[in-house]
């Protein structure tokens, strides 16, 4: 049998990732009510039978809770990935094309944001917004652009020296038109990969900050909250409260990491022959 080539593999992975997102989001919305239902006749059940993730001390079905929690993480993650990568694109292009002052300023801001440990920055932003749900969303959405902005800036700087761009300049095309017609199509693959790879990061950070107790109210099913609640019950041996929700989170992140990486490899001209 012939080995599956990289192109097919990437397509399959991306398809699986998107399908997975879709299913979880829809399921999360469908079960949103059910995730809050408590039922003391079925509390503290270990996994198996009707409740494959078990139930917690209030008799809530952990599988449904995990699904809803994950679907919310995914929505925040998608929003954050979109906002952050568009921000990165704009700032990266601006830094590379608008002259020295703009470049220095934007590079400076990137260094500044990277200088505060990410979690600490999220705590600060969450505090700035009064420790609510909004703070988490804004924090996660606004802090993931730095490394992608750097990549795009470098790419544009290289592009500026390319022959076809120089030719366009000599032909008298305006800066804006060059950026739009000639640079953006070239940047698109980088941008897409950045977008996909930002998503798992955003999800992880959302889970982390809610785990620490910022943002969401405690009855809300969110992966971070589920896991931080489970800590209290670990010593009693209720391992399933922490194990399965975490596994599903890791699975989501791995899926997107692998899909993004394989897309990057596919688009990278240096490794096309593989």
């Amino acid at each position: 049998m012939r080995r599956i080539n990289g192109r097919m593999m990437t397509a399959a992975l991306l398809g699986a990732a998107v399908l997975f997102l879709f299913v979880i989001t829809v399921a999360g919305h469908m079960y949103a009510e059910e995730a809050l239902v408590t039922d003391f006749s079925r509390k503290d059940l270990s996994p198996g039978g009707a409740y494959i993730f078990g139930t917690d001390w209030l008799g809530r079905d952990m599988f449904i809770r995990t699904l809803t929690g994950l679907s919310m993480s995914i929505q925040i993650g998608i929003l954050a990935a979109c906002v952050s990568s568009v921000l990165a694109l704009i700032l990266g292009v601006l830094a590379a094309t608008m002259g020295k002052t703009a470049d220095a300023l934007i590079t400076w801001v990137i260094d500044l944001v990277m200088g505060i440990p990410h979690i600490l920055l999220l705590i600060l932003i969450s505090y700035a917004f009064g420790k609510g749900f909004k703070g988490v969303v804004v924090g996660v959405a606004l802090t993931h652009w730095t490394s992608l902005a750097r990549v795009i800036r470098g790419e544009v700087l290289q592009l500026k020296e390319a022959l076809y761009i120089r030719a366009a300049q000599k032909l008298g095309m305006s800066q804006l038109k060059i950026a739009w017609k000639h640079m953006l199509p070239h940047l698109f693959p980088q941008f897409l990969v950045g977008l996909i790879l930002t998503f798992p990061h955003a999800i992880l950070h959302e889970a982390s900050i809610t785990f620490l107790g910022f943002g969401l109210p405690p009855e809300q099913p969110a992966i971070g909250i589920i896991l931080s609640e489970s800590m209290k019950y670990l010593a009693m041996g209720r391992w399933w409260l922490a194990l399965f929700p975490g596994l599903l989170l890791v699975f989501t992140v791995v899926l997107f990491d692998v899909a993004g990486e394989s897309l990057r490899k596919l688009l990278d001209p240096g490794s096309t022959h593989k």
């Binding site: 896991l227 670990l234 010593a235 922490a242 975490g246 890791v250 791995v254 990491d257």
Partner: peptide, 23 residues
């Protein structure tokens, strides 16, 4: 490496706690 890069530190901490401290 890929697996660990995708694992939140706090969850890994919980798993290690379960194994070494509780179990």
């Amino acid at each position: 490496s890929l697996l660990i890069a995708s694992t939140p530190a706090f969850w890994l901490a919980l798993v290690l706690l379960m194994i070494f401290a509780v179990w």
